[in-house]
Write a protein that binds this DNA or RNA. Sequence first.
DNA 1: GCCAACGTTGGC
DNA 2: GCCAACGTTGGC
Length: 150
Amino acid sequence: MGKKYWLMKSEPEVYSIDHLKRDKKTYWDGVRNYQARNFLRDQVKAGDQVFFYHSNADPSGIAGIAEVVREGYSDPSQFDSKDVHYDSASTQEKPIWYVVELAFVEKFKEIISLDQLRKIKGLEKMLLLRRGQRLSVMPVSQEEWNIIVK
DNA sequence: GCCAACGTTGGC
DNA sequence: GCCAACGTTGGC
């Protein structure tokens, strides 16, 4: 199977592309939405490419690129009762939530803002641009990826 | 900070 | 299983 493409959202005040650049690599924790979880658990594979999206930002938009270096495994934050992502319903044997590990690849010179994305031809159907769409992990088609990288 | 859109919860 | 209430996301 070929390489796949994703978009993952983070609030830059919590974790930005600059943090990833500094850390070189991180695990993407705190995803607490079942649809996004299913992507992390079942579909995101090592080598896949990821757009790092800044949400709740000024401006919001795609800030750079990361690469998946480790596939889905149990999110440690779900077992930590002091963590905001703690989930008392989850057990070590049957974890509910998953993370993947990402490595820094590239930071764009300028963020590609939501506004700009909406104006680019060929992205009209992009999941990110759908009204009311709130998934924090979502697939990006190869066509969309190529258009945006260009 | 507001609020639209959507997901989740829980009473029935 | 329906659906109102509530919580969260995220653009503005």
